[in-house]
Amino acid sequence: MLIFNIVDMPPLRRCGGLNKIVYQEVPMFGLGDGWVFSAYMLCIASSILCVVYGILKWNSDGDTVKDLEQEHWVEDEIKIEKQL
């Protein structure tokens, strides 16, 4: 990905002191190499993946296990928590 920065150059005396505006290429958001740029992008992409997955699956997988075992587990858990 290329982003262009406008760089104000200092006056060039030999050319009559004209100010010159040039476009300097700033690759990869100013980051130094493709690996770091990829990491930066993948951080954001992974977060977006989590958000999209969360939205798509917002209402799925509700109450798949609901039996005696769960009741026992919960009773035990409360007992352990209280004791501690």
Binding site: C43, I44, S46, S47, I48, L49, C50, V51, Y53, G54, I55, K57, W58, N59, S60, D61, G62, D63, T64, V65, W73, E77
Partner: peptide, 26 residues
């Protein structure tokens, strides 16, 4: 993981968790 009621809660938690961790370690 064992302290949530159903897998639905885990699905939903992924949404918040992904953004939360980005803001923390990122």
């Amino acid at each position: 993981f064992m302290t949530v009621k159903s897998n639905r809660e885990l699905n939903r938690a992924i949404l918040v968790g992904g953004v939360f961790i980005l803001l923390m370690t990122g």
